[in-house]
Design a binder for these strands. Structure first.
Lengths: 107, 107
DNA sequence: ACGTTAATTAACCGATCGGTTTCGCAGGCA
DNA sequence: TGCCTGCGAAACCGATCGGTTAATTAACGT
């Protein structure tokens, strides 16, 4: 669990994978259900799910031949926390920073 | 500006690049300064900066032969907003979700 | 028992990645 | 003028990526 941020951000860098995560936000889905909106093969979708799983974003429960996936919030929360560190830049400190760095662009 | 989330998340997937962003959070830096903490060549660091620039995370100002980089908060804010969408999963709805999906694990 | 369905695995492909080394070039300095 | 410095560009490398097709396994329905 050292630096899973690598895998989390990498997983989110792909639009297909982000769409899958959005879908999973609405509820659990099988691999085929996750694949269906996308113009890719089931094998490709299976790989995407595996990437999300490796990142810890998705948990799988095998029910018979169906693999039911659901969202695991913690890695997303970790990534969100990482980004929230920079919140000060687009809040209070933003104007001051721009004024300091590039005075003629502050207005 | 269509879907820069791809490039932003991809940029953040690399620990070296994340370290550079952290450094830039403390103030502007030249490419050489950004490279110095890392055991890579200057050319490699230059590539990293270009990736951050393509993602819109970094802005470059050429001053003589020095390229001064500074943080651009908006793309990071966009990525943060994207993740904040899932906030409900690690807040109020988390318990309910787990109880629904996996009843015997809710306690 | 048989065919269908859900999914993984393996092999393969071209593209991209992250690094290197080398070269080039413009800016600062003696 | 001539040299060092800061940086980008190009060529190259092995590794990984995202996709395919084909084969395989296991579970379900009839």
């Amino acid at each position: 669990m050292v630096e899973q941020l690598d895998t989390v951000f990498h997983a989110l860098a792909d639009p297909t994978r982000r769409a899958m995560v959005r879908t999973l936000a609405a509820g659990e889905r099988t691999v085929t259900e996750l694949a269906s909106p996308h113009p890719i093969s089931l094998a490709a979708a299976s790989k995407h799910v595996k990437v999300l799983e490796r990142a810890g974003i998705v948990r799988r429960t095998v029910l018979g031949r169906r693999h039911v996936c659901r969202l695991e919030p913690r890695p997303l929360a970790a990534a969100s926390d990482h980004l929230r560190f920079y919140e000060r830049f687009w809040n209070d400190r933003l104007d001051a920073l721009e004024a300091f760095v590039d005075p003629e662009e502050s207005r």
